[in-house]
């Protein structure tokens, strides 16, 4: 990690511990330096992490921190619901996770993470497809299902959903549309949903 810091000037690194014992901690890298860091990790003779095994996204929701102290000044995004307590929203973020292995040195994994600024409009991270070709489809999938925009990706289109689809289904706050054909089952709520879509008398 220190060598990485030395090799890429101005890099911002953060080591995230892993709560599960025996599993590696991960390295958060700023999207601005992600490509340089990835090139270093790939080409450094001591690492040679040439195999990007897994690329995926993680959606971390906005968390609400409740504070009982009275705050005079208004921080942006303050929501006042109860008189005495102020709730400060800690913005969530989307995260692109890369698992890098080395085929040449048969070692790994190094878990690389890039985080977006928030979940709504600043959802850009750097694409590592120019460095690792194998990230191409997986980054497209993350774009499709999470809505992370990978800057520098050569062909960023939806992978699994159709092109006209609007939302990003793997986000935690995704609400499934109520417009597909339900199979009637004995469960009441499903039957109720189904009744809304079938003509009167068609449902059993």
């Amino acid at each position: 990690m220190t060598r990485l810091a030395a090799a890429v000037p101005g890099i911002q690194l953060e080591l995230v511990p892993n709560g599960s014992p025996g599993n590696p901690a991960s390295l958060v890298v700023d999207p601005a330096q992600a490509v340089a860091a990835a090139v270093f990790l790939r080409d450094d003779p001591g690492l040679l992490l040439d195999h990007v095994s897994n690329v995926t996204g993680v959606d971390w929701l906005d968390t609400v921190l409740k504070e009982t102290t009275r705050v005079k000044q208004v921080i942006d995004g303050v929501e006042r619901e109860v008189e005495q307590t102020t709730e400060r929203r800690k913005p969530g973020y989307l995260e692109a996770v890369y698992h890098l292995f080395s085929m040449a040195r048969k070692q790994g994994p190094v878990v690389l993470r890039q985080r977006t600024a928030n979940r709504v409009d600043k959802v850009h991270v750097a694409s590592l497809t120019p460095v690792f070709r194998g990230a191409e489809f997986q980054e497209r999938e993350v774009f499709d299902l999470f809505g992370i925009v990978f800057d520098g990706h050569p062909d960023l289109r939806r992978l699994l959903m159709w092109d006209e689809f609007q939302d990003h289904p793997m986000r935690k706050d995704y609400v499934e549309p109520d417009d597909y054909e339900y199979e009637p089952t004995p469960h009441d709520e499903v039957l109720d949903k189904a009744r809304r879509h079938y003509p009167v008398g068609a449902t059993p």
Partner: peptide, 8 residues
């Protein structure tokens, strides 16, 4: 427990 793992 909270944490993450990658098995392949």
């Amino acid at each position: 427990k909270p944490g993450e793992a990658y098995g392949r």
